[in-house]
């Protein structure tokens, strides 16, 4: 039975390590984490994540080896008695100081990424100066308000504002900011491909910025259980070239001013 436990605690870490090596070497299997972020900041967030993963992996392997060593030794000798270590001052200093140093290092190391991601004063200036849209989360959809082309987004709705629902458009390779609000309960604005996640809180206007570096349609979902229809809040971010973005706003403007005589670019909702 002693040998069994020994083998048991050897077996699982080996499986875990083999799995991780295979999964990270062959991403085509889809066993590893999702692909690279489409924003630079997202990649830096990923790097932080991987750094923690490496530290944890090293600690995991170390503790497993120690555990197996102890089990192995104990399973071979019946005479050797356990060493009672409770109250050992030096041991306690070591296991308090070493993790503290690691945590302190992480806390300092991530500060600039955090500031860039969350602290408005550190946002890129071009994003801070001209938010492109106001997104209002509500049960169970995302209502989006853009300023008219060539105008700035105002806090209060303007007569020429443009409205859309569940389809946020943003130009690529430009840092853009949106103002996030909630119309009812707490929601969470989540762009997984861009590594952006921010709670929408009733009564608050929360700025978020991102700079998509890839064209495409990315998922925009609610990441906070907001009610029974939570799953319905599946919208999309369309990140496109500057010209396409302007064309989109023009189309929105034409549709919104449609009086039955001007030709709307598309009266029917955009289809997939």
């Amino acid at each position: 039975m002693r040998k069994f436990w020994c083998a048991f605690f050897v077996f699982w870490p080996i499986v875990a390590i083999i799995y991780s090596i295979v999964a990270s070497m062959t991403p085509s299997l889809g066993w590893w984490f999702p692909g690279a972020s489409v924003t630079e900041l997202g990649q830096r967030i990923d790097n932080l994540f991987y750094l923690i993963l490496y530290i944890v992996t090293a600690v995991f392997i170390g503790t497993q080896i120690a555990l197996v060593y102890v089990l192995w030794r104990a399973s071979h000798s019946k005479d050797e008695r356990a060493w009672f270590s409770h109250g050992s001052h030096s041991l306690e200093v070591i296991w308090s100081v070493v993790p503290s140093v690691i945590l302190l290092f992480l806390a300092l190391y991530q500060m600039d990424v955090w500031a860039l991601f969350r602290v408005q004063a550190y946002f890129p200036k071009e994003a801070r100066d001209a938010p492109i849209a106001e997104v209002t989360a509500r049960q169970f959809e995302w209502r989006i308000r853009y300023p008219a082309p060539g105008k700035k987004l105002q806090l209060k709705p303007q007569p020429d504002d443009l409205y859309d629902v569940n389809d946020l458009h943003a130009p690529i390779n430009r840092a853009v900011m949106i103002q996030l609000r909630s119309g009812d309960v707490q929601h969470s604005f989540f762009l997984p491909h861009l590594r952006v996640k921010q709670d929408a809180i009733p009564g608050q206007i929360i700025p978020i910025w991102f700079k998509a570096e890839k064209q495409g349609i990315f998922e925009l979902t609610c990441a906070e259980l907001c009610g029974w229809g939570h799953y319905k809040m599946r919208a999309q971010l369309t990140s496109e070239r500057e010209v396409e973005y302007e064309a989109y706003l023009k189309k929105l403007q034409a549709d919104q001013n449609y009086d039955g005589h001007a030709t709307p670019s598309a009266v029917a909702k955009k289809d997939e």
Binding site: F140, V165, N166, G229, K232, A268, K269, D271
Partner: peptide, 26 residues
Amino acid sequence: HDDLKRILSYGIPGTYMPSFVPMLKD
């Protein structure tokens, strides 16, 4: 048909009727 589809696509602001696009396809 188009009226009903429009309501499903755009929802009804001011009520609990949400938009179902792009979750649901055409």
